[in-house]
Design a protein around this nucleic acid. Structure first.
Lengths: 197, 197
DNA sequence: CCTACCGATCGGTAGG
DNA sequence: CCTACCGATCGGTAGG
């Protein structure tokens, strides 16, 4: 979504520009007039394409939630794969989604709390479900003897922390490409979890 | 600061209550009228004790920055200690500050970007200095053969990520106490960095 | 610490 | 998509 496309619908343009502004200044501190100026139109004109400011935030957050969830399902679809393999694939999928949606991911991480009910609660549920997936996969790996760690829940916590932290330091022009980041992240985290020996 | 004290100056009460509100609703979305209501006074009355809304945010952010920095200096004061030991002490110090200032730490992590210049730039410099301290300490440990990791900068990144993530899941009534969290965090991170054996 | 108020800005709408 | 505007709310101040 942050990649430049030849022709975007006005609605898609609004979402894209708002994503960038919400990330840079925060949802609450971004005004519809700023958004309009950035788009080269008047503030009132925005409302022919959307119903409210929060509707934009809602779309950003839930679109990303969908992508992360879909990525998880693909990564863990192969039931024959070991827990360690599924975990590595899930990490790679997460990094992939994140890097192709850097601005939206940052909004996803920090601005969702400005959603009002019931969206706020629905979002939190999705997020908890996603995080629980990682916790349970790590626990399964430990139970199967594939992974070793004194506290699976704590290990999951540091993994999720690293994933959440990524959009704040990732630079598209950095020396590490998407694939390398995913690989190094998976290696480092799985390395700490691998059976001693 | 989040612990209940018998008598706080009005200014300290304002800071404490604002910290809680800024954390829960975000700086931009918190109004001075909400803050006043929470304090049981009228909005205008706040300004006999402070000059502006941003002044409160400024104090919160820079007080925490000071505490983190002072903790770092204490943890690394003993030049005879190994890099691994200094790193463990620095992690414990960081967790200690964070856990005794949960709300302020969350504000410190997420709301500093609403500071205007020059405070914004000054804060970023302090933060970069603090993060660089960890990076350089890990690099020294690797150079001395005390720590092993393929990419010291990347290892520092996941460490800082875990520290930044802490306020979002820490619960004072959880089963892990402050010391245990610091210990487990240090163990897990240093375990992944320890010489293979 | 309150009352009363300032100018600015907010999200959003009506009518074209 | 614009013009013109709504009521509400914002951070902050004057004067007591």
């Amino acid at each position: 979504m942050e990649t430049s496309a030849p022709t975007l619908s006005r609605k898609a343009q609004i979402d894209q520009t708002a994503t960038r502004l919400f990330r840079r200044r925060g949802y609450a501190a971004t005004s519809m007039r700023e958004l309009a100026t950035e788009l080269g139109i008047e503030a009132g004109s925005i409302y022919s394409h959307i119903r409210s400011k929060e509707e934009i935030l809602h779309r950003i957050c839930f679109r990303l939630a969908d992508e992360f969830m879909q990525g998880w399902r693909n990564a863990t679809a192969d039931a024959h794969a070991s827990a360690a393999t599924q975990l590595r694939r899930a990490i790679e999928s997460h990094v992939h989604v994140l890097i192709h949606n850097v601005d939206a991911s940052a909004v996803f991480m920090h601005e969702w709390r400005h959603l009002s009910e019931p969206a706020h609660g629905e979002f939190l549920q999705l997020r908890h479900r996603y995080e629980a997936n990682f916790r349970e996969l790590i626990a399964r790996g430990v139970a199967a003897g594939e992974l070793h760690t004194p506290d699976p829940a704590f290990a999951a916590l540091t993994l999720l922390a690293s994933l959440a932290w990524l959009p704040s330091w990732y630079r598209p022009d950095g020396k590490l490409g998407p694939e390398q980041i995913a690989e190094r992240l998976a290696d480092q985290l799985l390395g700490g979890l691998a059976p001693a020996g």
